[in-house]
Design a protein around this nucleic acid. Structure first.
Lengths: 195, 195
DNA sequence: ATAGGCATACCAACCGGTCGGCATTGACTT
DNA sequence: AAGTCAATGCCGACCGGTTGGTATGCCTAT
């Protein structure tokens, strides 16, 4: 192993940062490779040295979105609190996490690559998160603490829809912290679920 | 004025239908003009006879999204019922309308063309809809029928986030009708707003 | 010497869009 | 009724520019 230059200095990082910005604002397909390298101050040779394709950059961005969120949900559930407290914690956690990765969330929201295996794996993980979330609601209904009138599906989609749209309106410099916003949403939904 | 052939037979319609499908599934930028005309069974000449650009097709699709929804909201408000009934009617109406234009909604959700005047006009209309919606909540809070704890912003984004995500999960062949889903969402949100 | 980081030059394919032309048509003339 | 003409719907070859991706080799640190 002969080390020649910094193997992973910050070039790779800059390419990822710039790509994230462009994908989030213009969309993946509308962003050219030339545009990425120009803005990142590198050349195409560098980009294709670190990534084997433009798609691979996208997939690495995808990876950050639901990377740790599923295990975070499972950890909260494993703590074994009552459904109200469990669901509240999950919602605050989800809102906070989404606020921290607004750009990635925007890229994910635009979708695309419906046939690629990476995208499908992503969707599968997302689907499992939804399922875990809805199970908490069902547990609460079975325990009699949530009304059976509201369906877990509608309740969950109002939460996921909320977080999926955050990238269009949430600004870090705003008055409310992500945790505040999460608490407010939890108040609204939990009050709605307990009739 | 010499009339020669059907001025607007169905060719134009087919181009729009196919474009809507492709834009909704692959995205605007990722869809080629060639792809549209091939799938529509027409030629590029025909397409550029009816539309002056690929963008114009997109803008015509945009036009359907919030075309009548703003005046629908204003009409409901003008009926002057109590805030609870007003908000419920608005939510059911919004959910039903969104269910009827799932594809258009998907195209709109992907966004793009952030600088084009058409897109900005669209956003402006959408912004005014949001404002009208939130005003109903504020009126309810002033009247004391809604709790002042929940912010109109969070409440509205859970509804708009819900509708904006409908295109990812709503299927017309499903068990619940759009009106049913709308009522369920209205139950959840209205219960949450009244503490 | 050697091996890897990266620049440069380059490619075929495809992009959105154009343009000259042709076939079809109804209105008008005869 | 037949012929002429202009307008139109539409075709498809073609355009310059851009696309994602590659081949080659310089340069530098070991």
């Amino acid at each position: 192993m002969a080390r020649t230059k910094d193997p992973d200095p910050e070039v790779r990082r800059r390419i990822l940062d710039v790509s994230l910005d462009l994908f989030a604002t213009k969309g993946f397909a509308a962003t050219g490779v030339q545009e990425i390298v120009t803005k990142a101050g590198v050349t195409k040779g560098a980009l294709y040295h670190y990534f084997k394709s433009k798609d691979e950059i996208l997939f690495e961005i995808y990876g950050r979105v639901f990377g740790h969120e599923l295990e975070s949900l499972q950890r909260i559930v494993a703590e074994g609190h009552d459904p109200v407290r469990t669901l509240r914690t999950i919602i605050v956690d989800l809102v906070s996490h989404t606020a921290a990765i607004t750009k990635e969330s925007a890229v994910f929201a635009r979708g695309g690559h419906a046939d690629s295996p990476h995208w499908q794996a992503m969707q599968e993980q997302w689907r499992r998160y939804q399922e875990g979330f809805r199970q908490v609601i069902r547990d609460g209904q079975d325990a009699g603490v949530f009304s059976s009138k509201a369906s877990p599906e509608v309740a969950s989609w109002s939460v996921f829809g909320f977080t999926n749209s955050m990238h269009t309106w949430y600004r870090p410099e705003g008055r409310k912290s992500p945790a505040d916003i999460g608490e407010e949403l939890a108040d609204l939904i939990l009050t709605g679920l307990q009739s």
